[in-house]
Amino acid sequence: MKILKNAAAGTVESSDAYVTVEPLGEEISVEVESVVIEQFGEDIERCAREVLAELGVEGARLVINDRGALECVIRARVETAVRRAGGDLS
């Protein structure tokens, strides 16, 4: 999926994550800010990259502001942001 425009998903409520995505040439950059960065920072980046790969995203800058979300929530927010950025609103 191609990132066509800037998009966002999620909230900064506790147990949620606010994810923004924007087009970025051919590379993928993932930035994570989290209340549990020491304990789960690497996990969060790994699962975000997995979702991007599953969706076939090739160029994107992803920023995650995590408020202690479980992995299934982070995955959902990343997917939603990417689909919105790719013009897929279904």
Binding site: S14, S15, V35, V36, Q39, F40, R67, G68, A69, L70
Partner: peptide, 9 residues
Amino acid sequence: IAPTFRARL
């Protein structure tokens, strides 16, 4: 008395 996790911890 405590929840099993708080903010994913």
